[in-house]
Design a protein around this nucleic acid. Structure first.
Lengths: 200, 200
DNA sequence: CATATATTGCAACAGCTGATGCAAAAAGAA
DNA sequence: TTCTTTTTGCATCAGCTGTTGCAATATATG
């Protein structure tokens, strides 16, 4: 993730902030408020960097958001690599159960749902670049479900992966609606039972 | 819907537009673009009424939107009254199949998903009044599914209604994502099969 | 120390949005 | 006709947002 290729040609005044750390903080802001409602002033406050520095390093608002989406995707990829190793339907069941865990903490950004799902509703139609980032994220999950289904020897892995992807997005929209992860509990329970039925 | 209680006390200059017709046109605009992206100028163009007239009759932007949500809910209520008469799970199956019908027409606002689902993602947390309108809409559907499940003598109607509601919202978010109702086909197929299994 | 170069803070700007004030217009009531 | 009341069109306003220009600053290099 971190660009180790530093320009050694000539070093002038160095930055007084860490690029990756700033991006992680901006993920939180966009995740909580969405693209439009996130203002440059909010990014200043969250990162401690002036708007000028942000623009110099990350580009304009859409550039920033694309980098944020990338960080978000990589975070999820890391989680998948841990939970779905090896790829099994049991891991999918654990994921759904974990999705609906009880948290009332309003500070927990997980209660805001999924940044990708939320993004679709805000500007999925608008920007092709953002749309592509969302599609990549969905494809990552689709392939994860497909591989897990196949690994357990269950038939028609493509269709079942599509179904699980749909259930996942439905559950995440429930979370966003209710503002709490507990809202996903009914759908998560059904998903776990359905998967259990596949294995039998 | 139409307020028949006209003030007969003293008639001055009459309006040169129909209130309900204007509301229906504004439903289209909000449905397609969402709350924030809909500007007062767009409402002017869609209805042919000046911004001053709109503000006088419908109030400020949030007032307008609440009236729009109300019209949308009543439209859905009318559809439910037709399809779910009598309340049966077969009607739910038909509804899911109809949801995923093939339409490539970009003019068809159905391809924008569901105004209520979209609204949640935009400002569900923000305004209590809007949140209440969405909750009412959801409750309408929840009760519809519950009554249909109960009428078919299937056990645990509350839990199954909650599941169908989740599937419905998941399918509608898929539609919004892909910009086409065909995107709901996989989830609709699963929903129909699942309901079929209940009846057996 | 002197120089070059990237960064930073401050300020300001243009564009857009929702809302409003006001006078003219229109139509029924007297 | 004259008056009263509501509507309408026009213009304008304040507020916010993303972006950028510019001078000051800090640091590596020679």
């Amino acid at each position: 993730m971190q660009q180790l290729m530093q320009k050694e040609v000539k070093m002038a005044r160095p930055r007084n902030f860490d690029e990756d750390d700033a991006l992680r903080k901006m993920v939180q802001v966009f995740w909580r408020h969405g693209f439009d409602a996130t203002t440059t002033r909010m990014l200043e406050e969250a990162t401690g960097i002036g708007v000028r520095g942000i623009a110099n390093v990350f580009g304009d608002k859409e550039d920033i958001f694309l980098k944020v989406l990338n960080v978000y995707t990589e975070m999820a990829r890391g989680m998948i690599a841990q939970v779905f190793d090896p790829p099994r339907l049991e891991a999918a069941q654990m994921m759904f159960q974990g999705l609906a865990r009880e948290t009332d903490d309003p500070e927990d950004v997980t209660n805001c749902g999924c940044l990708m799902v939320n993004t679709v509703f805000e500007l999925g139609r608008a920007s092709p670049r953002i749309r592509a980032a969302v599609e990549e994220y969905r494809e990552m999950w689709r392939e994860t479900f497909r591989a897990a289904t196949e690994a357990d020897g269950v038939s028609d892995p493509e269709a079942r992966a599509e179904y699980l992807l749909g259930i996942l997005w439905g559950a995440l929209s429930q979370i966003r609606l209710m503002g709490s992860t507990t809202a996903a509990a009914p759908m998560a329970r059904i998903a776990v039972e359905t998967i259990e039925g596949w294995k039998a």
